[in-house]
Write a protein that binds this DNA or RNA. Structure first.
Lengths: 356, 356
DNA sequence: GGCCTACATTGAAACGTTTTAGCAACTACC
DNA sequence: GGTAGTTGCTAAAACGTTTCAATGTAGGCC
């Protein structure tokens, strides 16, 4: 038997704890804790002991267990509600900082309440379609409440088949029995209206693969509205991705084909930006030849050239609505599944000026 | 004595716990736990008891203590390292999702290591200048390691005066004894060089208030380089804020004054976008009349019209460097304070094409 | 030698959970 | 009427900390 595995290292399984340090340094765990928290002077720990403990800490590579600390800690630390934002690695990230801000702000307001509680915000990410692999999702061991967004159809199915033991709000997804906040599904129809009001009749819609629930709704309601108005079927321009470059390519190819087009709707502002470049390089003008309507998900769309008209909902408004809804549901008896629709606002800018 | 404060509610202080539910429902805490975790069938809890427990939970508004759950939980939950991203409420948010992604990705790689540990990512926010009020900052009760960014001078002073009991990496800030990742301070000088190479001699720099350590360095090294090249003093154009609109206004006023200008450097891409609009509305062309160089912090700057040249560092590269540095320092004996400079890359695009 | 004080340390309790072993009461069977 | 099995629950241990009261040791003073 190797002498290393002698009596003082019984299981030596996983993590280095206060106990391992205490054994290594030959002191009690109380003393170790005092040193770790720099209370050694107040608690009158001998200088030499402090040195030995510090040495053991360094050798063993100690990392405190945060859960244990918080559990033990004062009322402040203990009375903590953990909120989670759950999103996929593959999602367009810019969205989630809206949620961070919204939740943090909502939590800050809430913190003034009589029953004082502090909030902790964690970000969990999963691989698209693998939501079910997220640790703590089913047990509720990791958070008290969550905002879930950017799920795929597989993930939605998983959610439908399971009931999560804590309040959840979905964003831009609807799944039976889950409360959710979604943008007005008629955004696409409003875009069609705007284009038709400036006498555009040869419409097109530009979207990227893969379609999410939201972008699909945007496309469908646009096509439906155009059809209902008796226009010829709108062209569908499909980009290979969701980024500007893919949009530029798809748009360039479409224009090269010579299909007539005088009104374009793009289901994200990023796509609009790519389309702008393709349109200008093809020698056409906006809005002279082609009017363009985006979605308003880039805050800077008023600074496009020309400024981009948009129908849509701001990320931050969605996020604030979701945050408020989530906080309201915490600790409440389970109210039914709410579905909140955030209305679409129109911003008419130069990209849809009338031809005349 | 009011009968309400009888023997079965000793302190009734703060949070509702398993114990309060047990008392209310007249069962043991073990039974309550079984019901809470839906193990009541396996554990053979009577249907009526389940009902009573559920009722008590609903009435009292129970919220589980996550720390306690994780502490108790299996090795998976227990062997968790908590990483924090600490930023101010007032900061430009888009930056931090780079950090989120970087840390999550770095953590995912790390998770394949022999000594398996899982990572949890929390976002902490403070009011600019009030970093010291952040709970857990000094005690280390909330996280095992942190990336700190967007601090003010006050915050930096606070950091300097205290030693945090866990690994920390600062981003685009330097404070004595703290490891940090910063962008190459010569970014401004490179911008000046680019402008001079296209024969621009009447230079200007556009920046917004308030200046951070980083933006200040960008301005200073630009001014220094222009002076060193023997050019007339570069104009300083100061916007009232960091957003596009403020930049547009400041730029419009500057142009209206008629001060000659043929090369502009903006310390963020957002400012460049605002400047673009002002320049075009003043009837001048880019790059014909004025060449523009930005910083490359908007991913979409290649889609500006004309595409924006930039010197600078991508947020995501900074973030990845910081994340790697932080993870390397976890559990290591304290190595000295490292300072990593992320080099600047030049992207020459149409906004700085030569006049000829 | 007895008593007081100062110093250095230990042991135990507590934080809120979950899980496991086990107890008590009842039913069923021979 | 004993034994075995089932049902429904409780008590206790454990997770890793921190804190607090208590304990022991040494030195100084009478």
């Amino acid at each position: 038997m190797p002498k290393r595995a002698s009596n003082d290292t019984p299981p030596a399984p996983g993590r280095v704890t206060v106990r391992s340090i205490a054994e290594r340094a030959g002191v009690s765990i109380g003393a170790v804790s005092s040193v770790l928290n720099n209370h050694h002077e107040k608690r009158r720990i001998a200088a030499d002991t402090v040195r030995r403990v510090r040495a053991a800490v360094a050798e063993l590579g100690y990392l405190p267990n945060i859960s244990a600390r918080r559990l033990r800690g004062g009322n402040d630390a203990q009375n903590t509600i953990v909120l989670a934002i759950i999103t996929s690695f593959q999602a367009p990230l810019p969205v989630i900082n809206c949620f961070i801000l919204a939740l943090r702000e909502a939590a800050a307001e809430e913190a003034n309440n009589p029953r004082r509680a502090s909030f902790s915000l964690v970000i969990e990410m999963f691989n698209a379609g693998k939501l079910h692999e997220l640790p703590g999702l089913l047990t509720g061991a990791h958070f008290n409440a969550a905002i879930i967004t950017n799920t795929t159809a597989d993930d939605d199915r998983f959610l439908q088949d399971h009931v999560l033991p804590y309040p959840v709000v979905l964003v831009n997804r609807t799944v039976q029995d889950y409360p959710s906040v979604i943008e007005d599904p008629e955004a696409g129809a409003k875009a069609a209206t705007i284009l038709m009001q400036t006498d555009r009749r040869k419409l097109g819609v530009l979207y990227g693969q893969p379609l999410t629930q939201t972008t699909q709704r945007r496309v469908e309601s646009f096509l439906r509205a155009a059809r209902a108005a008796g226009l010829p079927p709108a062209g569908e321009i499909v980009a290979g991705g969701l980024n500007e470059e893919a949009a530029r390519e798809a748009m360039a190819q479409f224009l090269a084909r010579g299909t007539p087009l005088d009104g374009l709707y793009t289901v994200t502002d990023g796509l609009a930006l790519g389309a702008y470049q393709a349109i200008k390089r093809a020698g056409k003008t906006i809005p002279g030849d082609i009017a363009v309507v985006g979605i308003g998900d880039y805050e800077i769309s008023p600074f496009f050239d020309p400024p981009l008209s948009s129908v849509g909902v701001s990320h931050s408004e969605l996020a604030h609505a979701a945050a408020r809804m989530l906080l309201r549901r915490i600790g409440q008896p389970k109210r039914g599944s709410v579905r909140l629709t955030v209305p679409v606002v129109e911003h008419l800018r130069e990209s849809t000026t009338s031809i005349g």
